[in-house]
Amino acid sequence: MTEVRKRSVMIAGHPTSVTLEAPFWDALKELAAAEGLSVNALIERVDATRTGNLSSALRVHILAAFRPPGSKPV
């Protein structure tokens, strides 16, 4: 089973916590680095466009980033 990690982050100047499994945190760090952003900045960007739970929105963002271009959901 994958370890779940809860981390505190600042979003728009407000502290909040995000709970993700370790591989998602690793992928989030990788995506942020590739875009020249801090992890917090990437989380803020996802937060600004989400409609539901932040942790879920981050997982969907990460999944979309790692899918091949043009791939369709199964």
Rank of each mutant, 00 (worst) to 15 (best):
D26E: 15
E21T: 02
N40S: 15
V60A: 15
E21C: 00
A48F: 07
A57G: 08
A22T: 12
A41K: 12
L54I: 11
H61K: 11
T51V: 12
E44I: 04
G13M: 09
P15Q: 10
I11R: 12
E44R: 08
A57R: 09
E35Q: 15
L20I: 06
A64Q: 15
S56V: 06
V39N: 03
S55P: 06
P23S: 01
V18H: 09
K72C: 02
G52W: 01
G70W: 01
V60N: 10
S38C: 01
G13Q: 08
G36P: 07
A22N: 01
P15I: 00
P23N: 01
H61F: 15
S55H: 04
G70D: 05
N40D: 15
W25D: 03
R5Q: 14
A65E: 14
I43W: 06
F66C: 01
L58E: 05
L31H: 05
T16E: 12
L37G: 00
P23G: 04
K29G: 14
M10Q: 11
E3Y: 09
S8M: 12
A32G: 08
D47L: 01
T2S: 12
V4L: 14
S71Y: 10
V60Q: 12
R7F: 03
L54Y: 08
S8H: 12
L54D: 05
P23C: 05
A65V: 02
A32V: 10
T49S: 13
I11C: 08
A65H: 15
G36N: 05
A65T: 08
N40P: 05
A65N: 15
I62G: 04
K29A: 15
S55F: 04
V18N: 09
S56R: 09
T49I: 11
V46Y: 07
A48E: 11
S8R: 15
S38E: 09
V74E: 11
D47Q: 07
T2Y: 10
A48D: 08
A41L: 07
K72D: 08
S71M: 12
D47G: 01
L58V: 03
K29Y: 06
E44N: 03
W25K: 03
A65L: 03
A33I: 03
K6W: 00
A22H: 07
L20M: 07
V39W: 06
L28A: 04
G13H: 07
S71K: 12
P73K: 12
F24K: 02
G36F: 06
V46A: 12
S56M: 04
A65F: 00
S8A: 15
A65G: 14
P73T: 09
T51K: 10
T51Q: 11
T16R: 14
K72I: 14
A32N: 06
E21Y: 10
S17G: 02
V74S: 11
V9F: 15
P73R: 13
K29I: 00
P68C: 00
A57N: 05
F66H: 13
D47A: 15
A64G: 10
E3D: 13
V60M: 14
H14N: 07
S38A: 11
V39H: 04
W25F: 02
E21D: 13
